[in-house]
Design a protein around this nucleic acid. Structure first.
Lengths: 116, 116
DNA sequence: GTGCTGGATCGACGTCTGTCAAGGTAGATG
DNA sequence: CATCTACCTTGACAGACGTCGATCCAGCAC
């Protein structure tokens, strides 16, 4: 769906004020992580052996219906945080390391006035 | 209100699966940043000269009513991302650098299986 | 082909959330 | 005291969001 190369986005939060457009872009990604289920999904995928996890494994980790898990995975995918690939019967999801790194970089406090 | 020393929380996302409790804690903070207005507020505060910004400055940066800005500042405060202090007539907000650092650390991909 | 299983999509439902207008509180000034 | 300014709180409302059951599609086995 073309959420691939979004966000060459955004200097560190504390370096200069985000423009409205940058903030709109970035906030989508934070919002995607702003749900406990999606955070756990991201963590399960990122920390899973081999760097990828099958939906069947993920579903078992929650007391939620299949459609709900599917929905959350879609949100994470559209935020550019994960990718999904079908291999035979199963669908495997992987973290997009570049996305995490970008987010992490935005939160960094290199030097700025802030240093407590 | 006691949102001070929350979150000694949480190893990196990719190191091990977050527990439900950890995910619930952390997701609150991400959710607070998951709104374009709040992200810009945080950025304005963090990047403001002197490390603090007065509400009056913040309000001027948006086409939003005072109560709405107040509401967003409260959400950021309750997420532990900023602190507010009244000095005379004005209220000044500051970023909590420790909160940003913690978030940044959670997103880091030290070594794990993931390394693309 | 039929049937089965893993996932995704589609509606629909209840709740949460961003927004504002109106009213309230704290500090400064006269 | 009264009054003005800066900011917060309350209450209400529309739109967004998380969840589910029902349905649909893709791949495998027979």
């Amino acid at each position: 769906m073309s959420n691939q190369e979004q966000t060459g986005c955004c200097p560190p939060l504390a370096r200069e004020p985000l423009s409205p457009v940058q903030a709109a872009e970035l906030s989508k990604v934070f919002k995607a992580l702003g749900d406990p289920v999606r955070l756990r999904l991201a963590s399960l995928i990122a920390s899973h052996e081999g760097g990828e996890a099958c939906v069947c494994d993920l579903t078992d980790a929650f007391d939620l219906s299949g459609p709900t898990i599917s929905h959350h995975l879609k949100v994470l995918r559209e935020a550019g945080l994960i990718t999904g690939e079908r291999r035979g019967t199963w669908v495997y999801y992987r973290i997009r390391p570049d996305a995490l790194r970008r987010l992490s970089a935005v939160l960094v406090l290199d030097d700025a006035g802030v240093s407590a």
